[in-house]
Design a binder for these strands. Structure first.
Lengths: 223, 223
DNA sequence: CAACATACATACTTGTCGGTATATTAGATG
DNA sequence: CATCTAATATACCGACAAGTATGTATGTTG
């Protein structure tokens, strides 16, 4: 049996975080067991409480570090890629994980938010930060597309971004409950279809003025 | 202090169900405390375990009775109203509860599904029944609209129904996390906008054939 | 090397949870 | 009214949770 290097504080902390993240994703935060995490990592309770003041603090660290990184890797960074905004969004949606295990455990951001937001304001605020960053990233990309002329100008970037987030999360929920990757695949296909409808019509590309906006109606989503 | 009639089995059961539902909606199933429910109802533990074999059985009853009734009242029955399908759907969405308290606690069906579906197959199946009934109700209405000529024929009723459910649930989640009724209102407005796009174009009403379907592409959603 | 703070280990405390055993009483039935 | 069962009450149990007290070993620094 390989003897791991003793005294590796950063490594220990990271292993605890990862194991805790998995346990929380499986069972939710409240039902996540400290002892389960310890068993999964071969770390003792003393060590855990050396690195984290409490179970709550561990939960906060999961949000701030593990989940935030997921959002960054899966959305925020890809949003900065080169290419047409709508193509970028479609690519991201298409690349979202489809494996049954992922579908079953769905989006951990949504899961935690559902469970903890009404119960714990600290959790809520941290999760909200992530949601806002996510939406803001999308909205910024949409605005860029609008100024390039590749995205319809008659839609509200913020609301459209929020709409996309809601769609993704909603479908993740359905797929999770159905425990069926097919549900998720159909959902993403339909989301992609909707994204296509956000493209600006051809003649208006590259800064051309299209048609005068109706003065009374609000800006609309792209359907 | 008014003395309630002693020995009222049906009433006791119902009070327990309602209180348990509220507690579960607040804290989730796993963290819902039996004692909290008892305190809220002035029922003793013996009485509770006379009516329900276990906490799980109580949870199942919440799904089968309380939540099923919510789905029926808010969706299934209204879906059978007179009028044009799209108008009916819009009416339902507009009438969904907007009060902060409701938003905060969101859709209990989604909450329970998120929490329990991966953990407990019995819960999952019961919740899935409700989701399917919900989607099927919408799909049936859409099909009716298609045969009447008021709903676009180039959309797949099942997928569109599922899409609508996902949207509603997704927005409920966002609103819950934001703890902000405004988020929900903007969301419903956008959902309504999307629903408008499902209407059949004027010239094709009443059974007329519109255009030949492209043979390769699948049926699309209505955007 | 001495001294010390950091990192980790073990055993324990305290409290809460779901569930049960058992007692009691209300109300239907003959 | 007597009897019997369904409904309700009370006290308790064992399991397990988070968290702590306290001890030990390790690596670092003066």
């Amino acid at each position: 049996m390989r003897k791991r290097r003793l005294r590796d504080p950063d490594g220990t902390r990271e292993r605890l975080l990862q194991a805790a993240f998995r346990e929380v994703r499986r069972s939710g935060f409240q039902s996540a067991g400290i002892n389960t995490i310890l068993a999964a990592t071969n770390v003792t309770k003393g060590a855990l409480y050396h690195h984290f003041d409490s179970k709550e603090a561990l939960g906060y660290a999961i949000v701030d570090e593990v989940i935030a990184k997921l959002v960054r890797d899966r959305w925020l960074l890809p949003l900065l890629s080169d290419g047409q905004p709508i193509d970028i969004l479609i690519g991201i949606v298409r690349r979202l994980p489809t494996r049954p295990a992922d579908v079953r455990e769905s989006c951990p951001l949504l899961n935690l938010a559902q469970e903890m937001s009404p119960l714990n304001e600290q959790f809520r605020k941290r999760l909200e930060r992530l949601f806002l960053a996510w939406q803001e990233g999308i909205a910024t990309l949409l605005r860029k597309g609008q100024s390039q002329g590749t995205v319809r100008r008659d839609l509200n970037p913020d609301e459209t971004a929020s709409f996309l987030v809601a769609m993704v999360e909603g479908h993740a929920s359905l797929a999770k409950n159905a425990q069926n990757a097919k549900v998720w695949e159909v959902g993403t296909r339909n989301i992609v279809g909707w994204l296509q409808s956000l493209r600006a019509p051809r003649q208006s590309r590259r800064g051309g003025r299209r048609m005068l906006k109706k003065p009374v109606l609000r800006q609309r989503q792209g359907f």
